[in-house]
Design a protein around this nucleic acid. Structure first.
Lengths: 336, 336
DNA sequence: TCACTCCTTGGAAACGTTTCCTTAAAAAAA
DNA sequence: TTTTTTTAAGGAAACGTTTCCAAGGAGTGA
């Protein structure tokens, strides 16, 4: 029913192979026949079938993108970066939300395997041992974004979380703050959790400030946990003057909580966030943050993947630069 | 190199068709042979090839999702809704950003055509005549989300923008506000622009309030245009006491501007937004808004598409309910 | 025992390409 | 002119499935 290469061949009075050749710009076809074929294609409104092509050439020009949750503010920019590059190279992306659930990750992987995705981009802050094992045996090139594995068995693009947290804390110290609380991520999170806590501790230590484990609070990066941890901060007798939050969303939660309880930001609390999401920028006061180059992380990951697919070799672990963006949520301690 | 159905057949000592039958749970295969085949599959670690299957059955189980920009806060939730339903029915989604550019829309459509997407979900607030024409001749089922065409030639899922704007304005009026400005969308936008302006006007009119075209400001739904339009509001001698914004992001921009200039929200200005994005919820003060059921719009659109693909008939134009969410950015006029 | 059904099964054909092998024709060389 | 080389073109085979048709065998009823 739909018009195929065969119909075109017949119409143009040439062979099958010839049509295929003009379709793929093979050199050895005379100008004359090329024209005939092109005319036939136009006339019949022929449309190539990428599925049939894929079956033969064993490449689908599709990339699987596994992500915890596209509706979580951190991810869309990454995906945009991925798609832009993919598009440039004529690849498509298949988007899969996993919610970090083992079951969904497994299903997603199976789907991608069956649909013969040429490669996979895995975006997350954690990667489980099981998934790593699955990844290793699936035999599809994979690049990790915003996470990496300790053994460096996978390609990855990340930022230096430890140093970023260090810089953020250092920034607060530079402003004169001596008692700095941290609203951290998850204790067991090897990317957004631990390294950021370590960076915070190192900055304190290096500046000769006392580390008080009681003012490190653990959250899940979301608004509510920022808000609730701030509640705890407000109950402290010896309140900190500054807060480093491991996510912008928690920072905003903390700021909201403070303001709702009659405190001022940055007058009573200087707050610095992490990630660089829109919310931090548009909040009032705008939240100082260390921005992860999300778009670039996606773009870079996709570029690496394409290179891998083309057989070029690429650096195994890429670290992109973060950026400390000064806004209005932090001020010099004591100044009014 | 990779193991196929043929290898399985050989190993199990059965015919090709038989393997295919157990793979597809056809009834007519004895328990005994089914077992043999299953064993062979396990032993060889056989993995079906969806590409080959698609070629034969003429269905890829892939849905194209065309969206202006996934990194714009309005869209991710919609996509999440889509993907959840898709996933449930074993479909995959191919995500394409179009930036509302004709060229990219065209390319995306061609890609989807070649890759034989079973259906398309088009998300936007506008759809151009040209694209409509392309859609009509492409012969792939299409559902529009968050937009519709005047002629009702396409399936669509939207909300009643006029009524939503009406309710929002009415809400402000009920609070006692008499002079209500609007920060509107684009004058030529047939979905998020015009109807919302009309709803605003109707509410005013119906309540006997004077319509002042000078306090309708036009923006592009983004923060900056909210901020800048608010600047104009602040210059007015006869300032409004309330503002209805056609997007949350503009509402937040307006609120930021007001607060930065020493005004208070909601004391000096009651502000109501539109969309129900996270930013409005987490802003301080939290912004009252009329929430579009974005997740549900995506989910519903996908459900409709699946039904269409299964040959069931479905309602042509579906309107989902919006919800006015009261938060802290609006208060009774005059009250302190 | 024979004729009929019904249930399983095997395998060829088809889906729409690309690629490789041939061959015909044209061009170049002798 | 004849031989050799080059170029253009045709078409079969293959990619990995599904589906359809034919057929063997077992069961059933008379």
């Amino acid at each position: 029913m739909s018009v195929t290469i065969k119909d075109v061949a017949k119409k143009a009075g040439v062979g099958l192979g010839t049509v295929s050749r003009v379709l793929n710009n093979h050199p050895s076809v005379s100008e004359e026949t090329r024209k005939k074929v092109l005319d036939a294609i136009k006339e019949l409104d022929y449309n190539p079938n990428a599925i049939a092509r894929s079956l033969k050439v064993k490449s689908t020009k599709s990339i699987g993108v596994m992500i915890p949750d596209i509706s979580s503010a951190f991810y869309p920019d990454i995906v945009r970066g991925i798609e832009d590059i993919a598009n440039e190279y004529k690849y498509n992306i298949i988007l899969l939300n996993t919610d970090l659930k083992r079951e969904k990750e497994k299903e997603a992987l199976i789907m991608l395997k069956e649909k013969k995705a040429d490669g996979i981009l895995f975006i997350s802050n954690t990667i489980s041992e099981k998934l790593k094992r699955d990844f290793k045996k699936v035999n599809i090139p994979i690049v990790l974004i915003a996470t990496k594995d300790d053994e460096s068995e996978f390609y990855s693009v990340t930022i230096d979380n430890e140093r970023a947290a260090y810089e953020a804390t250092k920034y607060l110290i530079k402003l004169g703050h001596k008692r700095i609380a941290m609203i951290a991520g998850k204790k067991e999170d090897p990317n957004a959790g631990i390294p950021r806590i370590n960076g915070y501790k190192r900055a304190l230590e290096e500046s000769g400030l006392k580390l008080d484990e009681n003012i490190i609070f653990y959250g899940d990066y979301k608004f509510k946990s920022g808000y609730q941890n701030m509640l705890k901060v407000l109950k402290l007798k010896d309140k900190p003057t500054a807060i480093f939050s491991a996510s912008d969303t928690m920072a905003v939660g903390a700021a909201s909580c403070a303001m709702q309880h009659g405190f001022k930001v940055p007058d009573d609390f200087s707050i610095i966030g992490f990630d660089g999401v829109e919310l931090a920028e548009y909040f009032y006061p705008p939240i100082t943050t260390v921005k992860q180059p999300r778009y670039e992380m996606g773009a870079k990951g996709m570029e690496m993947l394409i290179k891998i697919l083309q057989g070029e070799d690429v650096e195994r672990e890429v670290q992109l630069d973060f950026e400390l963006i000064e806004r209005s949520s932090c001020k010099v301690k004591g100044e009014s």
